[in-house]
């Protein structure tokens, strides 16, 4: 199948290094401490953050010096074309919940909030490829909306490799083509990678190109997120010494 025409256009009219249109809004769930809606093309995700608040189930607290971060990912039944009712807590949801939690934990300054708990709820409203990245971006925005101190933003973007071309931000059709799909999460200011997932094999030099492209996508998303919420509480500004680790 031809995913990039010889004229260099993808099936939806984008060029290989172009991202889908981004849209975001904060404060969409009034009851939550922080919330955000994030759209990448037709992929639409909502995130709500509760906390920091008192730990509700002491048993879960493993480390008293740090805040407990919990994450629950779900997919609305109407989010994909075929409206099948998916059981909650299937393997994929559990895995994505874990990925989001670990990624967010890497940037939340959990040691500033001992004996407390932060809950992140992420729901996919519309799925059209790149849901993982959209969830992370929405969670970042929601956390910033809740005023939770973070050492940096986390932003995520995917890139793939089809028809011997690295492609940024795969949509559903491209994602289902069976090529490689690299999802990257970065801390843009610290210039660090916090998430890297790939579900196929690529040779190292091609992998580097694809990852480079995804990283550039992450940076572009970071710029966009800063536009949406200019008042992000970034801990590095408070404790500049952290920058040196």
């Amino acid at each position: 199948m031809e995913f990039v025409s010889p004229e260099g256009l993808r099936l939806d009219g984008r060029r290989p290094t172009e991202m889908r249109q981004l849209r975001a809004e904060i404060g969409v769930v009034s009851k939550a401490d922080g919330s955000a809606m994030f759209e990448m093309g037709n992929t639409k995700v909502i995130a709500a953050v509760y906390g920091p608040r008192e730990v509700q189930n002491r048993g879960q607290q493993t480390n008293n010096d740090h805040a407990l971060v919990r994450c629950e990912y779900s997919m609305a039944n109407f989010s994909t074309g075929d409206r099948v009712r998916k059981p909650k807590g299937d393997r994929r949801s559990i895995e994505i919940s874990l990925v989001i939690r670990q990624t967010m934990e890497a940037c939340i300054m959990t040691h500033l909030m001992p004996r407390s708990q932060i809950d992140i709820f992420v729901q996919v409203l519309q799925a059209d490829g790149g849901t993982r990245s959209a969830c992370i971006n929405a969670a970042t925005l929601a956390l910033s909306d809740a005023g939770i101190p973070m050492c940096d933003l986390v932003t995520s973007c995917s890139a793939g490799y089809l028809n011997s071309t690295p492609l940024l931000d795969l949509n559903y059709i491209e994602d289902s083509a069976g090529g490689a799909d690299v999802t990257v999460g970065i801390l843009p200011t610290l210039d660090k990678v916090t998430l890297l997932q790939m579900d196929a094999k690529l040779s190292t030099n091609i992998f580097e190109d694809v990852m480079q492209l995804a990283t550039e996508g992450c940076k572009a998303i970071a710029n966009y997120i800063r536009e949406v919420n200019p008042f992000i509480l970034i801990a590095v500004y408070i404790w500049p010494s952290l920058k040196t680790f």
Binding site: Q21, N42, G81, G217
Partner: peptide, 21 residues
């Protein structure tokens, strides 16, 4: 990335609801 101006349209396929950009 987006040096070009885009306008976006969506199109709905009736049989299986599929939204494509």
């Amino acid at each position: 990335l987006k040096s070009n101006v885009f306008s976006k349209k969506t199109r709905n396929n009736k049989i299986k609801k599929e939204v494509r950009e």
